[in-house]
Design a binder for these strands. Sequence first.
DNA 1: GGCCAGGAGGCCT
DNA 2: AGGCCTCATGGC
Length: 253
Amino acid sequence: MSCEINIEATLFCGQSFAWTEEGGQYTAVLGDRVVCFDAQSLPSLLKEDKELAAYFDNDYDYPGAEKYLSLLDPHLERYIAEYRGLRILRQDPWEVLVSFILSQNNSIKRIRGLYRRLNETYGSEMAPGLYTFPRPEQLARADEDALRALGLGFRAPYVLDAVDQHRLLETIENLDDELGSLQLQRIAGVGPKVASCILLFGFGRRDVFPLDVWMKRIMSNLYPDKDPSFFSPHGGLAQQYLFHGYRDEYGRR
DNA sequence: GGCCAGGAGGCCT
DNA sequence: AGGCCTCATGGC
């Protein structure tokens, strides 16, 4: 599918904390690869780079999904018209697990800071100032005090439990959404919301609909008589548009 | 501008 | 139902 991607919304709406933008250049370390592009070069890059194409979920029919959701409901129609091109990134499950443990009771800005300090402290430097997200074995060098010193607070022991149980991620692929969620919730600091983010952003479960305080607010204000199944089979994409659109309209960044 | 409370994209006990 | 680390944020 070659179609327009809303790069800003996709990379900075809170799915991933890996990206930086400077002078029109978007940069991140994906796995152990430094990836850098500008808005103009992305489409051609996706054609020749299968790995990056998979990361951007480039084979999925987004125009079709956008059309479906636009016809489903006027709120979505408006938000999709405004933010068209939002993608659900297919990220590394381990990175998503830890990132979203960090996200609880926290703001995007602070999450980015914690994420960066984890990389700088426990990751590998691929280029000057550019670090990988630490693998479980690397993060295993940490103890609770060290993680608290980085500012993780009460999330520090949760991350350590995630390190201990990281092999559990290998079992998720074979489970359906509901069982996968329950399995993920065996990790400390992972409840229903964090589990749904891991399934959506780390395992490509496109119908999962993370329900955080904002989404609960949106559901009760805009869809008082509906539940997330209303958006099926595009729950995840609907959630992203609603979250992004509603917060831009009524909330803060 | 600086200071200070309450809140932040949940989860645990 | 309350507490939790920490700090960016908004209200004085």
